[in-house]
């Protein structure tokens, strides 16, 4: 286990994702203040942190949705900032993402949402996409008939499962999960976590999840990292959350009001 501030060691091999000194500000607000993190290939990393701590901005930087002000992002040892647009697109082709609210395309039926990437890249015909969607929907526990519905006709849990199906349909190497259980009841949360673990294992993918749900973090994570005020303050095994010996992580994991993390409340 690594200590405060130090990135986890990648046990010899090059980490799948390596962040060094990642910094990002929005106007005067410093959101990322030098994030250092290694994510091991084939492992599931959970990034914990409170609201506004910089979790989402970190993964948006990795995905290329936000350009960092400073620092490097490496995937398989390649610095993303030095890639050409085409090389960057090739890297993105190997990435899947489950958004917090699903971010399903309202104007498309579920089957087209699930196979969107395959259709966009002409890797599959529309006829074959329907069969492929049914196959992937089955992997997340949904009937093939769901494929003909539109996202607005689905419950929150079903939308998450369709989002998961869309994330895994193109069989990516790396999958990001943004708050996968937020807004779900505990049982549905556990179901989604189980599906995430199964899908990631089946694909042999590297998973990066951001969450503030401790139960979910323990279920889906091999490794965990805590981000606070734009810096990684702890990394270690997800199984030890709550008993890490790090006051910040333990306070966060137990949901305690008193401790080193003070909420900025206006009096």
């Amino acid at each position: 286990m690594s200590g405060a501030g130090a990135p986890p060691r990648a046990e010899g091999a090059t980490p799948k994702i390596r962040l060094r000194g990642l910094a990002k500000s929005f106007g005067p607000k410093l959101v990322l203040d030098g994030v250092d993190l290694d994510i091991r290939a084939g492992h599931s990393m959970v990034i914990l942190g409170g609201s506004g701590s910089g979790k989402s901005v970190t993964i948006k930087c990795i995905l290329g949705l936000i350009t960092p002000d400073a620092g490097t992002i490496e995937i398989d040892g390649r610095d993303l900032s030095k890639l050409t647009r085409r090389e960057r697109e090739a890297v993105n082709d190997r990435i899947g993402m489950l958004f917090q609210n699903g971010a399903l395309f309202d104007s498309l039926p579920v089957w087209e949402n699930v196979c969107f990437k395959l259709l966009a890249q002409n890797r599959i015909t529309r006829r074959a996409a329907r069969d492929k969607a049914a196959e992937v929907l089955a992997q997340v526990g949904l009937a093939a008939s769901v494929g003909d519905l539109y996202p607005s006709e689905l419950s929150g849990g079903m939308q998450k499962r369709v989002g998961l199906a869309r994330a895994i349909a193109a069989e990516p190497d790396i999958i990001f999960f943004d708050e996968p259980t937020t807004g779900l009841d505990p049982i549905m949360g556990a179901v989604i976590d189980g599906l995430i673990v199964d899908c990631v294992k089946r694909l042999g993918a590297t998973a990066v999840s951001i969450t503030h749900d401790m139960a979910s973090a323990r279920r889906i994570g091999d490794d965990a990292a805590m981000i606070h005020r734009g810096r990684i303050v702890w990394t270690g095994a997800a199984a030890t959350l709550g008993e890490t010996g790090n006051a910040m992580v333990d306070q966060f994991a137990r949901g305690e009001r008193e401790g080193p993390i003070q909420m900025e409340l206006r009096k």
Binding site: L63, I95, F105
Partner: peptide
């Protein structure tokens, strides 16, 4: 309204992660 809703519900970010250029699409 349609594209704005896609923006605020992360659908435009989702297009990027699905190897699709939102400007083109």
């Amino acid at each position: 309204a349609e594209i704005g809703t896609m923006r605020v519900t992360d659908q435009i970010d989702a297009l990027n992660t699905l190897s699709t250029n939102p400007m083109k699409y």
